[in-house]
Nucleic acid binder design. Structure first.
Lengths: 107, 107
DNA sequence: GTCAAACTTCGATGATTGTCGTACTATGGC
DNA sequence: GCCATAGTACGACAATCATCGAAGTTTGAC
């Protein structure tokens, strides 16, 4: 319990467009972002409607976190996920809205 | 001149977000789009500032064309490229602007 | 202390893809 | 006709990546 279980979150100023697009190009990750965008509250890693194994899901959450798209923190044994919307919008204006809107339309 | 050398261009209504993001995630292709967005006129395939071989460039242009991002037509031996901006914006509102803006800022 | 739940970490694997060189086609100028 | 220019088509190759299962860790409940 000594160790802090909160993972590292990058400063949005140091996230590149390349990294963001690499994160958003995967349909599973895009689905996670869209579900977060539509949700009224945080969602635990296990609370998403995705069809991959748990280890694959962990991988996707790390990619999204390192791209500055989500913030993660523990509550008990659950890892909760939040969209970093305001910060992200400031760094990449219009991008998240455009992608989420198009993604919603295509599902 | 029997064969029509104009390639097929997809209807934007049949282009998926997935295909668009796969096209925009490559830095060379994104550079092509940004250069087109900044240019006052069409650009031939050989007129871009990219650092890949000709055969690789051909590949990238095909991907962009199939994603509905560019239109290509021959003028003599040159293949000219245009952004399908208006059509694309209608199908994916805000996406091209967001990506091009962020791409310009990161170069 | 014991056990289950929720994730993570660590290889391994299969598919995709960006890259190139070579060969080929079409056009325009001479 | 001949030749240079501008691209395309076709394999081939290397690197990346999404995926999984198995094993490990941390927490909370009993």
């Amino acid at each position: 319990m000594d160790a802090d279980r909160t993972p590292d979150h990058p400063d949005l100023r140091e996230v590149t467009l390349q990294r963001v697009l690499e994160a958003l190009v995967d349909p599973v990750r895009r689905s996670i972002v869209t579900q977060l965008s539509d949700a009224p509250a945080d969602i635990s890693c296990g609370g998403f409607d995705i069809s991959v194994s748990k280890s694959t899901a962990t991988h996707h959450f790390r990619v999204l976190r390192e791209a500055g798209l989500i913030r993660q923190h523990y509550v008990g044994t659950s890892r909760m996920n939040t969209l970093r919307r305001a910060e992200f919008d400031q760094a990449f204006p219009g991008l998240l809205d455009a992608v989420v809107t198009a993604d919603r339309a295509s599902s």
